[in-house]
Design a protein around this nucleic acid. Structure first.
Length: 256
DNA sequence: ATGGCTTATTGTATAAGA
C-alpha cells in the first residue's frame, strides 16, 4: 500500500501535474494540501476517471485539503473537533483499515506574529485530538504539510534560519509532542540521501541550488511502524514547468 | 540582501506563502 502527501499550491493550476503523478505512480492514497478552491470546483470527475475516490474541504484563495484514494473512503471527519477554526486545514477518514489524517498545519509567518500564536494553538489542538484518535484507531497515519523542519539536517542552512519559523524551538517541541504520542517520522526509518528536502523557495533558484527544507511528513503510529517498507521524496514534479513549490513525499507499507 | 517567485483577488496593487 502506497501513501503520499503533496502540497500542490492551488489545485486549479496543478491538476495536470496531479493527474500525471497519479497515473505514473499509482498510489493507494494521496493527501493534498492548499487546494485553494471551494468544493464546487474540486475535480471529482477527473479523479473518478482515473479510478480514484476523493473527499475534500476547501475555501477560496487559501488552505483546502483532500484525500484521494483507490479504496473507499469512510467515516470522514472535517477539521479538528472542538477547535473553532474558520480555515479548512484537516480532513480525516478510514481507508483500507487505516485512519488517514491529512493536515495543512499553519505556516506561522514570523515568530513574533499573531499567526505564529495561531500555529502553536493549532498544533496543541491537533495533539489533543490525535491522542484520542490513536486510542480509537491504533493504525493511524498523519500526512501533510507540517510547516516544521524537525531537525537541523532538514534545513539547507540552519545557521541562517536559526530561531525563525519552520525551525524555531517551540515548533520543534510541538513536533516532538506529536512523536511522543507514538507517531514516527517514516522518512527517518530508512537511510536517506544527505540534504533531502520537500520544499524549495520559488525565488533565488532555490530548487536548482537545493536550498530547501523538509517540512512535509508522513508520521505513522506504533502499530504501522513495523509495516513500513520504504519512504522517499519524489523530486520529479518539482522539475516540471510551473511546479508547486512542494514535491510529493511517499511511504510504502506492507499492507495489501 | 525580509526578497529576487507564485498564487489569488469583484485585481491592475496587495496579501500570503515558507
Amino acid at each position: 500500500m502506497k501513501l503520499a502527501s503533496w502540497n500542490v499550491n492551488s489545485l486549479n493550476v496543478r491538476l495536470p501535474h496531479v493527474v500525471d503523478w497519479l497515473t505514473a505512480n499509482q498510489p493507494d492514497v494521496l493527501c493534498l494540501q492548499e487546494t485553494k478552491q471551494e468544493d464546487s470546483k474540486f475535480p471529482y470527475e477527473a479523479l473518478r476517471e482515473l479510478g480514484y475516490h476523493a473527499v475534500h474541504i476547501g475555501q477560496k484563495t487559501y488552505n483546502g485539503v483532500a484525500i484521494i484514494s483507490r479504496h473507499p473512503i469512510l467515516n470522514v471527519q472535517h477539521n479538528i473537533p472542538n477547535f473553532d477554526d474558520d480555515q479548512q486545514r484537516v480532513i480525516a477518514a478510514d481507508v483500507n483499515g487505516i485512519r488517514i489524517v491529512c493536515a495543512y498545519i499553519p505556516n506561522g509567518q514570523a515568530v513574533d506574529s499573531d499567526k505564529y500564536q495561531y500555529k502553536m494553538r493549532w498544533l496543541s489542538a491537533l495533539n489533543s485530538w490525535l491522542k484520542t484518535e490513536l486510542v480509537q484507531h491504533p493504525k493511524l497515519a498523519l500526512l501533510g504539510d507540517y510547516n516544521i523542519a524537525p531537525e537541523d539536517r532538514d534545513c539547507h542552512d540552519p545557521v541562517a534560519w536559526e530561531g525563525q519559523i519552520l525551525v524555531s524551538p517551540q515548533e520543534r517541541e510541538a513536533f516532538s509532542r506529536l512523536t511522543n504520542l507514538g507517531l514516527h517520522d517514516s522518512f527517518r526509518l530508512f537511510d536517506q540521501p544527505e540534504k533531502s528536502f520537500s520544499w524549495w523557495d520559488y525565488r533565488m533558484m532555490g530548487f536548482r541550488r537545493n536550498l530547501g527544507m523538509r517540512i512535509d511528513h508522513i508520521l505513522v503510529s506504533d502499530s504501522l511502524k513495523p509495516l513500513c517498507n520504504a519512504a522517499y521524496i519524489d523530486k520529479a514534479p518539482r522539475k516540471l514547468e510551473r511546479p508547486s513549490d512542494h514535491t510529493p513525499v511517499v511511504l510504502e507499507l506492507n499492507v495489501d
